[in-house]
Design a protein around this nucleic acid. Sequence first.
DNA 1: AGTTAAACCTGGTTGC
DNA 2: TGCAACCAGGTTTAAC
Length: 276
Amino acid sequence: MPELPEVEVTRQGIDEPLRGARVLDVRLGKPLRWPLGCRRDRLVGTTVGPVLRRGKYLWLPLSREGHPAGGLLMHLGMSGSLALLAAPGEPGPHDHFDLSTDRGALRLTDPRRFGAVVFSPALDEPPASRLLARLGPEPFDPGLTAGAVHKALRNRRAPIKAVLLAGEVVVGAGNIYACEALHRAGIHPGTRSDRLSAARAAALLDALRQTLARALALGGSTLRDFSDVHGASGAFQAEAAVYGRAGLPCPRCGRPIRRAVHAGRSTYYCAGCQRR
DNA sequence: AGTTAAACCTGGTTGC
DNA sequence: TGCAACCAGGTTTAAC
C-alpha cells in the first residue's frame, strides 16, 4: 500500500504530536520483516525528535538528555499503517509494534508483516544506512532536474515501469503511482528507459511530481488497509485513471485499459494514449 | 545488466 | 457452501 504519498501523510500526522514526546514503553507483537535490533531499555527514557521521511521509510530520531541516541527506521511494507492513540489499549491481532509515550502511543498495524521497525544508532550508520543506500533522489528535491533524470535513464535498458519501481533513478513511486504517472505522461510502461527522449523524461518527472502531489493532497490511496494516523482513508484511488481498471475505458481516450506485467507486478495502461 | 521467481505474511476475491 | 487458486500498496535475495 504505502507509497511515498501515504508515508508522507503518515509522517505529517505524527511529526508534531510526537516531537518532544518521552518514550515510556515499547511492545512488540509478531515478528516483522526485520528484528528491532535493540533492547527495550535503549528506547525507554528517550525523547522523540523531528520525524523525517526518506523514500518510503520514516526515521524517528531519539535523544537522551539532549544527546543523540539513535532512532527508529520504520517501513509500512504492503499493508502497514501507523496510528496515534491516547493510550495503547489491548492490541489487536495485527498490531505488532507500540511505542508508548507521554503524549500517546504510536502503533503499527500490519496484517502482512512486510513492514519493519529497526533501531539504528544513526541515519547514516548501519543498519539504516544500508537500507537506504540504494535509494535514488527524492522526487520533490528541487535539485533533481529533468536533465539528471534523462541522464540516469540513458543507462537503463529495462522498461520504464520497472525502472520507476526500482526507485534508483527517483524514489517514491510504487505500483499505483508508477502506473498513474506514466499514463499522465503519455508514456507506454514497456518503453525501454534508454529510448526516452529528454523531452519525454522531463514530461515523466513532471507527471510523477503532479501525481504524487495530487495523491498527497487527497491523503494518499486506500485500497484496503491504509489509513492516516487518525484512521482516515485516502481518496486518490477514486481518481486513478488506469490503476486497477483493466477493461474499463481510459478517462482520456475511452479505449479499454490493459493489464500487463513488468518486474513481476501488474501494470495498467492505455494503449491509445501511452506510446513507446 | 536483465528479468524472473521466490521469499517474507494475511486475507479478500474469484471460480469451479 | 466449500475449497483451491490467485491476487494485493514492497523489498530483498538468489538464480538463470
